[in-house]
């Protein structure tokens, strides 16, 4: 009888602990994301920029836009390859989260808008979006992700990624300036 009561108490305690852990695991702000959620968000953000780049290759005839778009595909695919290799090495799987979902939802409306445009209007909108997107993602990576990543290898990859994406931001700024001349 005593043993049965003890087991019930242990079970209740375990369930309570899991429930608390589960509540704590649901992040509602970027800085609350865990390493695997951050990895998922970054992977999604990379894929969104690759999608924008494919759209630019299909709709633009401007050689500068094409070159930039090819660089985005080349670099973001390389970053994602590194991220997947690291996750495999760590035996972990990236976790979907509110921010990944928000990025995907936002990208759908941006793609809808871009696909309505042609010529110089498209080029300008694509370049403006690339500048704004890289600026926003770089701030997120620098201020919310890197300070909160716990795994040193994941942190190192994000630090390397940030250097690449800062170059992209500068490249996009050059492109915007040239298109406005």
């Amino acid at each position: 009888m005593k043993s049965c009561m003890k087991n019930r108490i242990v079970s209740v305690l375990m369930l309570t602990t899991l429930a608390v852990a589960s509540c704590a695991a649901v992040a509602t702000t970027p800085s609350e994301l865990n390493d695997l959620e951050i990895a998922h968000t970054a992977y999604v953000a990379d894929n969104i920029d690759i999608q924008y780049a494919h759209l630019a290759l299909a709709l633009s005839t401007n050689p500068d836009i094409h070159e930039f778009a090819r660089t985005m595909i080349r670099d973001h695919e390389a970053v994602n390859e590194q991220a997947l290799a690291l996750l495999e090495k760590l035996g972990a799987e990236a976790q979907d989260n509110f921010l990944s979902q928000k990025l995907i939802a936002d990208s759908k409306s941006i793609i809808d808008n871009l696909t309505q445009l042609r010529g110089a209007e498209f080029d300008k909108a694509y370049a403006d979006n690339e500048l704004g997107y890289h600026k926003a993602v770089n701030e997120l990576v620098a201020d919310a992700f890197i300070p909160n990543i716990e795994n040193p290898e994941v942190k190192a990859l994000f630090e390397q990624g940030l250097k690449i994406f800062k170059q992209h931001e500068e490249h996009a700024a050059m492109m915007v300036k040239k298109l406005n001349e």
């Binding site: 070159e67 660089t71 080349r74 170059q167 500068e170 490249h171 050059m174």
Partner: peptide, 8 residues
């Protein structure tokens, strides 16, 4: 420079 990353 780097053709892919013209700021380099």
């Amino acid at each position: 420079y780097c053709f892919y990353h013209p700021n380099m």
